[in-house]
Design a protein around this nucleic acid. Sequence first.
DNA 1: TAATACGTTTAGAACGTACTAAACGTTATG
DNA 2: CATAACGTTTAGTACGTTCTAAACGTATTA
Lengths: 161, 161
Amino acid sequence: MNKQKKTDFQVQFANAAGMLASRFSLNPTVGQIYGLLYMSNGPVSLSEMVKKLGISKGSASTNVRILESWGAVRKVWVDNSRKDYYEANPDTLNIIINRVREGVGKRLDEAEEKLKNVEKGLASSAAAAEDNAGFYESRINKIKESYGQIKDLLQFFSRED
Amino acid sequence: MNKQKKTDFQVQFANAAGMLASRFSLNPTVGQIYGLLYMSNGPVSLSEMVKKLGISKGSASTNVRILESWGAVRKVWVDNSRKDYYEANPDTLNIIINRVREGVGKRLDEAEEKLKNVEKGLASSAAAAEDNAGFYESRINKIKESYGQIKDLLQFFSRED
DNA sequence: TAATACGTTTAGAACGTACTAAACGTTATG
DNA sequence: CATAACGTTTAGTACGTTCTAAACGTATTA
């Protein structure tokens, strides 16, 4: 009974985290798992996640490893047990900042690459001879500028000193 | 022929923007449309979007209004035409910053609300009497702190002076 | 007034994502 | 050596999202 109540509170928190995650285009289960571990005072096994959150073993296994790859949880060793135990990295803000930085940075690099190709296509096309050639160039330069500014913002966040 | 080449360049750019958009969990068509308008020196009609991008009329109509609601494009008046014309707001960086600020802010407010309820549930549950009660409180406070820091970051961006 | 030219809305289909259940491989244990 | 207890992987399914095609409403034009 007491046990039940305890679970309820943690699960409520976990579910709120899951809802928040899905609002940010993340899969809800990573949010639930992180939320549960965040609100647990000690290591939690896969089977506890399964039982408390009512999710499947496969989903728990997959998603906890996603969280691990983000540095949001880590595997901890528990004596006399064959089970895998995890605990949350409680520094949520840093996890978020790192993920934003890496995620945005990667996508921006892809975009830069693609822009380079489009620009090359422009140079060798009839568009370059148009009246609008100057306009095209200026817009491309403007985009490159924005790109640089976003990169600067990301750098700003990565200062940890 | 010349016309064709010109279209190709703009469409290449638009498609790159579409790809980038979908990498950021946005629907690709808003990216394509914004990209086309961004690379057009003058107003563009719905039917031009349809023809150049190879999308349906319905999709163009829906998505251009999404862009309008973001302040990313605006409707412009063209004499002697019953068509709707649009042009891009070329300040891409500001559009992005505003959307991030509003989108994140809104979701964070929802989360804060939910957290408040969970906290209330904690107070009136057996969990509050546990050994872990102090731990729970500290974790909740830590989350609230992160919440405030993110809010501060968002405020930081909204300075336009 | 009939026909046309618009933009909008809706119904249906296609697609990607993420879940569950079950098969699987491995390691411990009786 | 057989069985059980794990975590992982896979096949299938359910769901939300976003597209197209078509129906629709409205306004213009012949």
